[in-house]
Design a protein around this nucleic acid. Structure first.
Lengths: 333, 333
DNA sequence: GTGAAAGCGCTAACAT
DNA sequence: ATGTTAGCGCTTTCAC
């Protein structure tokens, strides 16, 4: 393996000079630079980022702890973050917490050990008890993504309340009064806020909240399917359904299909989270789409800003969703 | 920031001893160990992975260059790789090449600079000309994933020929003779091999290859949609369609829908690559599903093996797909 | 415009 | 069982 010293010797200069031509950190005589560049080319020298990081005290590396990489939604998020970071010359180290506080702690510890310059975390449930405080204690710049947590740091996520309210209200406007909601996993902000939106819409229209219509899908497709099937099998069943995240939607649709209920004739349907196949489905799905690209890019920017200079007030950014009026709600094509 | 020296001083031992208790690299008297551990707890010491890597000559880090993270298929792949690696105490650094040889080069260069212990690459088209040879030259362990390339290194991907043949043949068995194929992007092994499978099926049944039935989707949903629509608008249109990857399938389905053609009555349909929503679609999609988990895990294992000890013969592993007989092909429920 | 030299925080061979 | 010491390959003051 060839080092900077080898290059220096070959070019007849000091290692210091080689370092400066590589990094452009000070004026170097053109002739000298050329000799150094020639030596680099000849030796096939490649700088050692680890040594560089140790000496410079920065790694140009950002860690991302994601709660479930198998969720296509998070795939796009990682993509957006990665793009913004790489444009700024940073690389991304990812860890998957499997939505479990304990493995999340392991993931972020390992990231911190590796001296990441900053951390982006999609918090798992329970994260605020151990993981997050531990990170804050290290002083490493931190941005939370996707889910809000009651802690003082930058946070970026989708708008929830108003979006869920709009979905629900849209169903109400179609004349529905018995609207069931399929909630995601308990204990996280998005579930709570989206449910709040649902409740607000009912309240605004004088419809009492009926606990029989609140379906706990626990953010598992299978659970959602089972519970929706149960709810739809009961007498006096709901005439409409709002699903609060993509896993819930898949579960709900499976249930409706297995019951041979047609959408929107038997039950109208609207969902939070959009799919690539939303207008392939029959009927096309009415959905509130998150702007994942913006969420990811914003998180990266917030973080980078903090990595550069310290101390801003923490920001909470809610990225608006886009309401796609399609047909599952009962609207005509 | 507290270093090992600080801990050592506090515990009244040498840095060397601290290192050994942390890494368990040699016997340490219980009393001493306890004092060191207390000092670690008291100072909140956290080891510096960068310094550690520099001194030890290994980073316990693996780089992954993926061609398009937005593709849900790759999201699962990253997930599988990440899991296998983290179980072995490695972390994953991801870069997205956007399926472009040039940015792939940048990504892998940056990974190599960071002294990754190994590299997993889902090669972009053209990768074999620049990127791959450059990696091989460094001697860094390398595993190719997803697509095969004519180069001597470990490779893991899905089985293509036989799977595509089976899909096509299944359509033939349903009585179809005019079967169109929607191909992915040119110049990569999976496109070639899957097409070979299609051709083989036709040949085996004495059906001549008709170039009018070969649709170039270029791995872009939009292109696929446009081209399929054009093909279906022509007179004497195909009675069946095989789609060769998930993006092609979405494009093809959009085209059929916009033409108001019903599946399988007007055209029978089968696709390579499965979806989470395959049996939500009406009719349920007949598909050959890749075993992404196995592909990812295998790649990680192959790499780790090579990181440990050197020099095995390169292996090429093809992971079989699973044929899901559903209804879009014309089979009954 | 260039070089010498002092670390960055750790590991590991060598002593004791 | 523990300490000493010499690096790992680079950045960066400081001096010329």
């Amino acid at each position: 393996m060839t080092t900077m010293g080898d290059v220096a010797r070959l070019a007849g200069v000091s290692a210091s000079t080689v370092s400066h031509v590589i990094n452009g950190t000070r004026r170097v005589d053109t002739g000298t630079r050329l000799r150094v560049e020639a030596a680099i080319a000849e030796t096939g020298y490649r700088r050692n980022g680890v040594a560089r990081s140790l000496a410079a005290g920065r790694t140009h590396t950002v860690g991302l702890s994601i709660s479930a990489l198998t969720n296509p939604y998070f795939g796009s998020l990682v993509h957006a973050v990665e793009r913004a970071l790489s444009e700024a010359g940073y690389v991304l180290i990812v860890g998957d917490s499997h939505d479990d506080a304990e493995s999340e702690k392991r993931v972020t510890d390992s990231l911190l050990d590796r001296q990441v310059d900053g951390l982006i975390v999609a918090p798992a449930a329970g994260s605020e008890r151990t993981t997050l405080p531990a990170i804050v204690r290290t002083g490493t710049p931190l941005v939370l993504i996707d889910r809000a947590v009651d802690i003082d740091c930058d946070q970026v996520g989708p708008e929830n309340v108003e979006s869920a309210r709009a979905l629900t209200e849209h169903l109400i406007e179609h004349g529905h009064r018995r609207i069931a909601v399929v909630r995601g996993i308990a204990g996280i902000s998005s579930t709570v806020e989206r449910f709040d939106g649902y409740v607000a819409a009912l309240a605004a229209h004088g419809i009492p909240l009926d606990s029989d219509l609140v379906i706990e899908g626990e953010s598992s497709t299978d659970v959602a399917e089972r519970e929706v099937r149960a709810a739809m099998a009961r007498e006096h069943r709901p005439t409409a359904l709002v699903s609060m995240n993509n896993a819930m939607t898949i579960g709900a649709l499976k249930a409706l299909r297995s019951l041979d209920l047609s959408i929107p004739a038997d039950v109208a349907f609207a969902c939070y989270d959009d799919f690539e196949w939303s207008d392939l489905f029959e009927p096309k799905l009415t959905a509130a789409a998150q702007d994942v690209e913006t969420i990811g890019a914003t998180a990266a920017q917030l973080l980078l800003r903090r990595v550069g200079a310290e101390d801003f007030a923490a920001q909470r950014i809610q990225v608006p969703t886009t309401f796609h009026h399609r047909n599952s709600c009962g609207c005509a094509s």
